[in-house]
Design a protein around this nucleic acid. Structure first.
Length: 816
DNA sequence: CACTCGGCGTCAC
DNA sequence: CGCCGAGTG
């Protein structure tokens, strides 16, 4: 939900710009809304379980549109329940089911239009749907964290502008945010952080506020005070009041104190402490960093002195390998198992992949046909999308980069990496000799390249390198790259640097593509006047309309316009010219000759049973103080005049017996020593963190829940609407079983609820406890408890059956 | 009067 | 999200 009222308040600096204005840039795209909207197209199919990928087409269309205008999208998806706000939520699920039933009824009566309406209300966006997009190479990262966060990280690093619908990207530090992508008018609404200073309260605009002279800190404080995803506002405080009071009282402490003194509004106890946590979320949220391929903090932070609960709020740490697999869409973010392919028949068509110069081989349908059982094991899940890049012999066309650029290989996951995106982007920018639209310091650039090139895989098989932005680079591309500092700097970085000469085909393709763009991308070349074109423009989004020239098997997804390609079993051909659709100009001369990348099916994702212990620095030493993050921006408020000297998230009066620090899974029996930690540490920590994570994230951010009803601080939760990973269900860990992990659980309410807070709004806020067997019950977080002893806990504790050990670390409620 | 808050339609084709 | 109307200080 972002920050209510923020967008209207920023109206005066919103500028509607044509997409072409961003030509040549790579833009991070939070494509969640795309999926959400696309559901409208195929609600019936989705509701009735009929295979469809219309939503993929929808997203594809938008990708094409962006490319058409020279914008290279770097698309990320939410790893959590995509409509995550609802995520685990029984009530909604029940309603959906109701609608589904009604829809079915209506449909059976022939009332299809009404049926559709019901279906519309019964469908939800799932990670599995996003996965279909990933299959089509539309999405790159299936993030353990929300796209907004990853985008914001990228943006905070001044790497990208971001296209989203979420207003709080600005709070995360993005310098440039694009909203309201209008695919008809081909415009976006741009908001730049740098314009904030010019926002003045305007009498004619009731929503306006003045942000003149505000620092990031103040702006963030205003956002949080007015209510954000992590913390509901003090009832009655909206953006304007937050803004006005902050201006007057300078710090959130001052504002809160004043609100209390005024006595008109009741300040929830511990609000300030929660405020600080929310701030931490905005500042240090753990996100997946495509550059380093692991979870990192949004902005670096020294965790010393944090306690577990604090860390829990900023997110769970995940072993890099796991994080990456999640990010690449290989794992179901809910179950951490292989993601279900809800439409196995849908495969990226050659016509789609036409845009992927290095892509999967298009034309060996014969070979591949039938090789991929629909039900499939892991190979089916991953085979099509993951490729192990083998070092390959140098291509005929040699170039300097082949010798100079170390490239990682072997652990490729197959999707285009950020490095590639950025690399390409930079080249394009250089070529344009236009200062990056995104302010980037030389330092950042160079640093960035070290990371990106050295640490990223350059898979041969999948590549999005297309588009006008690329084509513009032309041959100078090569020159740029030769001269680039990245070449030298990348040497010697990390483990991932591969032996010289192992330049993978993608790299080569990269270079080759400088010459071949036109042919590859004919469909996407932009007519924009800003681009020099030396070939007839063939681009048009409409071209994307699938060709029906080929027979489609009757039982197949009708949307599927190419069912016969199986990238898995068909190594890419040497030349890909044939990919082009009949009638396309470039096919005859497609000079895109490259050696066939070796494409192997990756092994099934193996999550090490003995998970690597949390990285140093991510291991939390339980501290009980929150107040010593002296290096943090947060502290610029000055001394904390809150009640507690070293404020914990809890105020003294509700100091829970089972605070995280005291409920460490492995601590009750005195298992604090390192040995036990070794055994349980990672897992238990995960559970604990997950608990905090859930507590922090699993609530609907509307103040409809306990937050609102109760005046007890313990019921004020950090929350975010777009829950990404929403852990729920049961955890089993060695001997210990957990009903629900807990965080800050007041002793008194440490019981299963019968549902006394059974107002609708209250129910909405409850967490669905996934029962593996079927039944579900709703618990509030206050009702969550950790069970040390399964037997003692009785029947209420049900370990997760059939859950492989390595997956017991986290169990998420399965979606749907 | 100003503001907050909730409900509802919108999206898509 | 945006709009609008109800409730409130």
């Amino acid at each position: 939900m972002g920050i209510q009222g923020l967008l209207p308040a920023l109206k005066s600096i919103q500028a509607t710009k044509p997409l072409s204005e961003f030509s040549g840039q790579t833009i991070a795209v939070d494509a969640y809304v795309w999926l959400h909207r696309a559901v409208f197209n195929c609600a019936t199919e989705l509701a009735t379980g009929k295979p469809t990928h219309r939503y993929v087409n929808y997203a594809m269309e938008r990708v094409r549109l962006l490319r058409h205008h020279g914008v290279e999208p770097y698309i990320v998806f939410d790893g959590g329940p995509l409509p995550a706000k609802k995520g685990t939520e029984v009530e909604r699920k029940r309603k959906r089911d109701e609608h589904l039933a009604r829809g079915n009824l209506l449909a059976s009566q022939g009332n299809h239009s009404q049926a559709r309406e019901c279906y519309l209300k019964s469908v939800d966006v799932t990670p599995q749907m996003a996965y279909q997009l990933i299959k089509a190479r539309l999405g790159y990262f299936f993030l353990p964290t929300a796209p907004a966060h990853i985008c914001s990280r990228l943006c905070a690093q001044s790497l990208f502008t971001v296209l989203t619908e979420d207003s709080d990207l600005l709070v995360f530090g993005c310098k440039n945010v694009l909203l309201k992508f209008d695919s008809v008018a081909c415009t976006v609404v741009s908001i730049s952080r740098s314009d904030f200073g010019s926002i003045t309260a305007n009498a004619s605009d009731p929503n306006s506020v003045s942000l003149v002279g505000w620092s990031d800190v103040q702006f963030r404080a205003m956002a949080i005070l007015s209510g954000c995803d992590y913390l509901p506002s003090i009832p009655g405080i909206g953006l304007k009041t937050a803004c006005a009071m902050l201006r007057k009282w300078k710090t959130p402490q001052g504002v809160v104190r004043q609100i209390g003194l005024d006595g008109k509004k009741r300040v929830p106890k511990g609000y300030l402490a929660h405020f600080k946590l929310a701030e931490k979320c905005f500042l240090h949220q753990r996100v997946y960093d495509p550059l380093s391929e692991k979870l990192v903090y949004l902005t670096d932070v020294d965790l010393d002195g944090w306690d577990d609960s604090a860390e829990a709020y900023i997110g769970n740490d995940l072993e890099p390998g796991l994080a990456k697999k999640l990010a690449m869409g290989d794992l179901d973010p809910m179950t951490l198992g292989p993601i279900e392919d809800i439409n196995p028949n849908f495969r990226p068509s050659p016509r789609i992949l036409r845009e992927l110069p290095n892509g999967l081989s298009p034309k060996n349908k014969g070979k591949s046909k039938g090789k991929k059982p629909a039900t499939g094991g892991i190979l089916n899940f991953f085979g099509a999308y993951n490729f192990i890049l083998r070092p390959k012999s140098p291509l005929p066309q040699k170039n300097i980069l082949q010798q100079k650029l170390p490239v990682t290989a072997g652990k490729a996951s197959g999707k285009r990496t950020l490095a590639e995106v950025l690399d390409q982007d930079l080249v394009a920018k250089r070529k344009r000799k236009k200062p990056s639209s995104v302010p980037t310091t030389p330092n950042e650039t160079s640093k960035f390249f070290v990371t990106s090139i050295a640490s990223n895989v350059r898979p041969a098989s999948i590549d999005f390198r297309i588009g006008p932005s690329s084509s513009r680079t032309g041959k100078e591309n090569i020159g740029c790259r030769q001269a680039g500092e990245e070449v030298e700097e990348s040497v010697g970085d990390a483990d991932s640097v591969v032996a010289q000469g192992r330049v993978d085909s993608e790299m080569q393709d990269d270079l080759r593509s400088a010459d071949n763009f036109v042919e590859q991308e004919d469909g996407y070349l932009s007519p924009s006047r800003s681009m020099s074109r030396d070939i007839e423009d063939l681009s048009s989004p409409l071209r994307f309309i699938p060709s029906r020239s080929r027979p489609i098997s009757p039982q197949a997804d009708p949307d599927d316009f190419d069912l016969e390609v199986d990238p898995i079993s068909s190594p890419p051909p040497i030349a890909r010219a044939q990919i082009l659709r009949p009638g396309q100009l470039s096919s005859p001369n497609q000079p895109h000759v490259r050696g066939p990348p070796k494409v192997l099916v990756e092994r099934s994702p193996v999550i090490s049973a003995k998970t690597a212990p949390p990285k140093h620095g991510h291991v939390i030493d339980l501290g009980d103080s929150f107040g010593d993050e002296s290096s943090s921006e947060i502290d610029c408020y000055g001394s904390d005049d809150d009640q507690t000297p070293s404020p914990s998230p809890l105020t003294p009066e509700e100091e829970p017996v089972q605070d995280v620090t005291s409920t460490r899974v492995n601590s009750p029996e005195g298992l604090e020593d390192s040995e036990e930690r070794e055994l349980l540490g990672v897992s238990s920590r995960t559970v604990i963190v997950a608990a905090g994570w859930r507590k922090a994230w699993a609530f609907d951010s509307r103040q409809s829940g306990p937050v609102r009803q109760s005046r007890n601080v313990s019921e004020i939760f950090l929350q975010r609407r777009e829950t990404n990973v929403t852990p729920t269900g049961r955890y089993r860990l060695s001997q210990a079983a957990y009903t629900q992990p807990l965080l800050h659980t007041p002793l008194a309410s440490n019981k299963v609820s019968g549902g006394d807070k059974s107002s609708t709004s209250s129910r909405r806020s409850r967490v669905a406890v996934g029962n593996p067997v079927g039944g579900r019950k709703q618990l509030t977080f206050d009702e969550i408890s950790v069970v040390d002893n399964v037997e003692a806990a009785g029947s209420d504790v049900k370990p997760v059956p059939d859950m492989p050990e390595h997956l017991t670390r986290l169990r998420f409620e399965r979606f749907r």
